[in-house]
Write a protein that binds this DNA or RNA. Structure first.
Lengths: 155, 155
DNA sequence: TAGATTTGTGGGAGATTGTGGGTAATACTA
DNA sequence: TAGTATTACCCACAATCTCCCACAAATCTA
């Protein structure tokens, strides 16, 4: 799965049936990895939907279920929050996926409106354009953020 | 059993005979794993019923009986809570299961009313909608919860 | 620049799903 | 044992969803 490489930002529209076309560039990446199924779920930041290629989702799922203890209430609540909005989607013959009303509501995405696809290397995000702008304005990376990031072996 | 992957939230109704349809998505997951029997039992949080696919239930049962110490009163109480309301259910030809009056009473689920199915990876929960809302409002994930979760190797 | 191919979007028909109810078999009760 | 209640197993049907086809706009290629 290390070869997935989603990059860039693309504008698409959600149709009357809650379908969105995955950008062709991203579809090619999926096709090369022979992936035709993704899992969409609530993004951690509000205002967007995460789109995980199936192998990435399975990796996340395995990590979660390995470390969850279901007698722990916090764990249970966390698990519910992750899973209840997660949905498996198989790309249709046009390369589209169907969003759920619940996720659209959570992300502020409206039927017939535009959305922004962002590639994040091995997964994607779908944003409502206004929410994305707002998010970028409200949470710029500060100097101290960079100092914290410096502690990770990043670039 | 690692391949079970119940995700999403679906609204269904309990009919006059205490039957609920298992959401089609979940039925497909069960069918692919060739499972047609589940065990329903009292959920740990109040207001819901747990639905374990048979293999998951057997795994839970084995874990419990291996580690329970019956001289320990907490263990005995926990065991009783799990077992006394646990019921084996075989899906009918429409993919429905029948809830027991006792479990419905415990979960606040009423005949003819709606329920919410939540997928939690390898099992499901059935909630009374009001109880679920109440639970979510009363026990939101806090910043300190996330800090604790951050220490787990999750995502 | 012109043709060919790919891409984005829309809509319609058939299959699936959720739900209700009826009947026969079984279990329970007095 | 007879009557009653409960359960299991069908069938039915409307609403919904999924899949497939179609076409226009955009992009690529020669």
């Amino acid at each position: 799965m290390g070869y997935l490489d989603f990059t860039g930002k693309y504008t698409h529209s959600v149709d009357a049936k809650n379908r969105v076309n995955i950008p062709a560039r991203f579809r090619k990446v999926l096709a090369e990895a022979e992936i035709c199924e993704v899992v969409i779920s609530k993004g951690i930041d509000s205002g967007h939907i995460d789109v995980f290629p199936l192998p990435k989702w399975l990796a996340i799922r395995d990590k979660i279920s390995a470390s969850m203890q279901l007698v722990n209430r916090t764990h249970r609540n966390f698990l519910r929050q992750i899973t209840q909005n997660a949905t498996h989607c198989v790309l249709d013959s046009q390369g589209r996926i169907m969003l759920t009303p619940a996720l659209m509501e959570l992300a502020g995405i409206k039927k017939g409106a535009n959305v922004e696809f962002i590639g994040l290397l091995d997964f994607m995000e779908i944003w409502d354009p206004d929410e994305l702008k707002k998010h970028e304005e409200n949470t710029p990376l500060t100097e101290s953020d960079f100092e914290k990031l410096e502690q990770l072996p990043l670039i």
